[in-house]
Design a protein around this nucleic acid. Sequence first.
RNA 1: GCCGACGUAGCUCAGUGGUAGAGCAGUUGAUUCGUAAUCAACAGGUCAAGGGUUCAAGUCCCUUCGUCGGCUCCA
Length: 646
Amino acid sequence: MSEIRIKLPDGEIKGFPKGITIGEIFRSLGIRDSVIGAKVNGRLVDFWYEVDSDSAVEPVTLNSTAGLDLIRHTAAHVMAEAVQSIFNKDNEKIKVTIGPVIENGFYYDFDYSKGFVPEDLERIEERMKQIIEENKPLIRKKVSREEAIKIFDRDGETYKVEIISELPLDEQITIYQQGDWYDLCRGPHAPSTGFVKAFKLLSIAGAYWRGDERNPMLQRIYGTAFSNKKELDDYLTRLEEAKKRDHRRLGRELDLFSIQDEVGPGLVLWHPKGARIRRVIEDFWRSEHERRGYDILFTPHVARLDLWKTSGHLDFYREYMYPSMDIEDIAYQIKPMTCPFHIMIYKSKIRSYRDLPLRWAEIGTVYRYERSGVIHGLLRVRGFSQDDAHIFCTPDQIEKEVLSVLDLTVFFLRTFGFDDYEVYLSTRPEKFVGGVENWDRATEALRGALRAKGLNYETDEGGGAFYGPKIDLKIKDVLGRAWQCSTIQVDFNLPERFNIKFVGDDNSRHPPIMIHRAILGSFERFFGILIEHYGGAFPLWLSPIQVRVATIGEGQISYAQDVYETLRKHNLRVEKDFRNEKLGLKVREAQLEKIPYLLVIGEKEVDNKTVAPRKRGGKNLPSMKTEDFLNLIEKENDPYRWKEVE
RNA sequence: GCCGACGUAGCUCAGUGGUAGAGCAGUUGAUUCGUAAUCAACAGGUCAAGGGUUCAAGUCCCUUCGUCGGCUCCA
């Protein structure tokens, strides 16, 4: 038998017979205890993995991230065994489907017509504990395709049979067995069920087989598992804490916005404090856009349906559009997209190459019919205001324009405090318009811009829109769900459909390239994420109430009023609390409302003509003159400089 | 849209077939107070909507509306 060379983490290289398993290697090295798997050349595998060529091998321990994947995958199997052993009846069989590891846990999908109820989770957990207690080893068996189909066909596991028949012909099919129970699975797994030390089943949900709504609805059980009880408890506590930062809850508590049945689902009412924040964002957004060479446009909320017929949206997008309405026998459409308007402005006169690039931005409110089940607070709604812009440019200008958009995007996100987001580059899909050359050129332009900005990104091959490649940025909400905010899309299609041209330096007419871009995405979604990001405690420059002036007794009202007026004159968003209440109450309320500064005014302050600032969070600053306070918060109140403070 | 859970006062929630409740918030009055809740009184409800079962429904059944979780993480 030929020998292979295994490089161990300490750098030592040892020879082993070809085809030796990880388990055998570790046994020969005396590695035990909390090691439950390995990484071979960076890939996570279990003890059954056979090493066929020279490789780097490092042990994976129970409490590592990779170790958690093994535990969770095994927990999914334990759960599946528990479910089948409890609910399988002679007249009804629960079929297993798939049970992968996900970001913070695992799930398993079952075909079970009756469906689970929450009480079932406890029963399943109890049975799982028994299976874990028995500490059954997970044994991997290689089977031929024919054998596998025979086994699962005999068991009535039709989904497994379907999966097997779709596997590539050269794929080695494996079964993992624990005691009498087994599952078609490619692994990897923990060595035995006893390694699932701490787990919890979290929720039941419906999920379509393979995520396709034309397929049967399966019953999914979500769960999570950790290497010990403390980490599990910590995770569950974190989940609870995260719920307190949910924008829907804070939106109500801080009186920022509401969404009401009587108005309609997915339609947002911005209350005064929420609207203030939006105004601040909008003002900042406008001035920054103008500074960077954008012009700001306004366009109608309704227009002739023909516009979206021409744009092609009606064909591709119909299910998301509200039905049109007939006005004087002409079909009108509530705006689902802004682009046709900007194109019509472009088209209103002849454009020269000397005019390009044209950068036109609009905070345009659009209405889209989102299916009832997907609406979610501010994050997915039916009426929202995009910070939309369209750049009309020549093909030569794409890269420079994309780079400047990306630059603006990163600038905005950083300014608002987001340093953590996912970036995706989506390339040409199978069905596309425009020439391959243009596509390649535009895709390279996007890639070049991403590299120039030094952004890490994932490529979504074939994930582009039919009209052009795009860059998307996603920000995560408090529960770890990623939401798309920024998008930059190159478009070869619309200029053609609307037949727009520019006169080139050769005196002939060419179609311009359009770049669609949104940076915040929609004000509603961005606001929702912003609320969660700060847990409602906005930085001073964004706070709806920046300062509250509070008196201690009646004697200070006149002076406190002067302070209040002074702050107002400096354009601060200031409130007064001159009520006949104890200071403790005023402090508590200001804190709960997450107001950045409370200026306390008592007799001492009146005598010395000062204010006593209390920062949100409880830090008391020494008494100071009002103008000193104004100087103190100047930076904090400036979007360009606020991050320099502490 | 589909699967499941839920819907009681502005908010958080109790009420398990027999007279609709609490705390907070609100209003009014008293209290003039130095950094997270002063005291008291009052007011507040088609129990999501509609239909049904029952002598009797917030409670049981059906329908509708809405909310929440999930429905592209492959054996």
